[in-house]
Amino acid sequence: MSTRDSLAIPAAKTGAPPRDRGGRSPSYAPFLLSLALAALIIWSWTGSDIELDRLASSGGRIADFLGRMLPPDLSVLPVVLESSAETLRIAVLGTFGCVVLSLVLGPLAAETLTPRWLHRPVQWLLATVRGIPLLLVAMLMVGAVGLGPLPGILAVAFHATGMLAKFYAEAIDGVDRAPIEALDSAGASFLQKLRFGAWPQMAPDIVRDTLFRFEMNLRESLILGVVGAGGIGFYIQVYVRTFQYQKVATLTLVVVAFVILIELANGMIRRMLR
């Protein structure tokens, strides 16, 4: 409440009746907000036609469902491994693409490097890109270049740039100017200042952000096949839709192992970066 009191002081100073703003409306605001929130939840619930008893009777069905997954059908292992590899390739090339794009757009979005008339629009552009879901981009890309991994790679590269370029810009803005000035004073050239002053300050952030984005790209690529943009998502869709649960089991195991492996590898690299 103390912040609200301090907010009320300027209002009093400008001559507005202090009680009006400082006293009454703040006590209504939380109440109205709670009311709106409650209305939102009720609307979501009633509008969705949810039958709670289905949840209650689901225990048996889930057991049945799990039972039908066992034992995993390992005959599809080669197919599943091959399409996982394709997903990995999509994530790797998609990450490569977004790194290249971010190396251009990151500096342009950096406030300490680029004038305001340019970095603001670039920041807006990146925010817009972030706002478009990957699956939507992938569908558009499939429409543009046809089925297969290529639209997946393009979609990942496009979608991920929205975040990665922002991270790069932040890494650039976090660079301390003082050491660079010191190198300048010592007679360093522009490239020397970049290499020995700026780069060591941002390199760990850049590498960490890139790895993080790669991990996200990998996860998000898993479902790209659903819209025909390549990788394991295609089989996820086919096996689930056709109730081949033993194959789904194999697929799930491979995907989980795959994601854990990549996370372990990333964790190791991150620890090496300190």
């Binding site: 050491p179 000035e181 010592a186 002053g197 060591p200 300050q201």
Partner: peptide
């Protein structure tokens, strides 16, 4: 005005850049 993430030796070496 040192490069915080670098070693002492690298920072002193930076004085040689010119």
């Amino acid at each position: 005005a040192l490069v915080e993430r670098e070693s002492v030796r690298q920072n002193v070496l930076n004085g040689r850049l010119g």
